[in-house]
């Protein structure tokens, strides 16, 4: 059976939402999978919110746009308000907690609250909060291997930023740990 994961990544412009999605798409290519990355590029984005739909599949991808998602990676309140209801029943919602006033309420999906901004601040690099979110996501949804993600970072980051790849790797591992702890607590 063809495995397909349809993901929405959403937050404010500047939080690294589009690049998080690109890292996912590049990682899929490293594993010879099919992928599409569809950004919001319109007036919506100019209003301060940005999102992208990433699809990763073993088979040919039909619509690059969908209205319901297997997983949502959410980095701000407006995006949570907009996309919580769009996660498929049984799907996954990862949200960055620092700016969330009204947390998600659904009981038919798996919800993970991630303190990505706080952990990124501890690293003195708030820009890697998106990679912490990616790590958390990949710990639960193992659709691409960590090694592929590291290769993907070399493609997404311009060469002048390649010295930051170890830091990004560290952030991804922190994200994985955060989720591991949550899973252990619930067990």
């Amino acid at each position: 059976m063809i495995q397909t994961e349809e993901i929405i990544v959403a937050g404010f412009g500047g939080q690294g939402v589009l690049s998080l999605g690109q890292v996912l798409s590049y990682s899929a290519i490293m594993e010879d999978k099919e992928t599409s990355w569809m950004p919001s590029y319109g007036p919506e984005m100019r209003g301060g919110t940005a999102n992208c739909v990433v699809i990763i599949s073993d088979g040919r991808i039909s619509s690059p746009l969908v209205s319901v998602y297997d997983s949502a990676i959410i980095l701000n309140q407006p995006s949570l308000d907009k996309f919580e209801s769009c996660v498929k029943p049984g799907g996954y919602l990862f949200y960055e907690e620092s700016t969330i006033v009204n947390p998600p309420t659904r009981e038919d999906i798996h919800i993970f609250k991630i303190s990505a901004a706080e952990e990124a601040n501890k690293l003195n690099k708030k820009q890697v909060a998106n990679m912490i979110m990616l790590g958390s996501f990949l710990e639960v949804r193992q659709i691409v291997k960590l090694e592929s993600v590291l290769k993907a970072l070399q493609k997404v980051l311009p060469e002048r930023h390649h010295h930051l790849i170890p830091l990004n790797e560290q952030a991804i591992l922190i994200g994985k740990d955060l989720v591991q702890k949550q899973l252990q607590e619930t067990n």
């Binding site: 798409s25 099919e34 992928t35 599409s36 990355w37 569809m38 950004p39 991808i61």
Partner: peptide
């Protein structure tokens, strides 16, 4: 269309 112009695929 704009979506095909803006989207990334392999």
């Amino acid at each position: 269309d704009g979506a095909l112009g803006q989207m990334m695929e392999k």
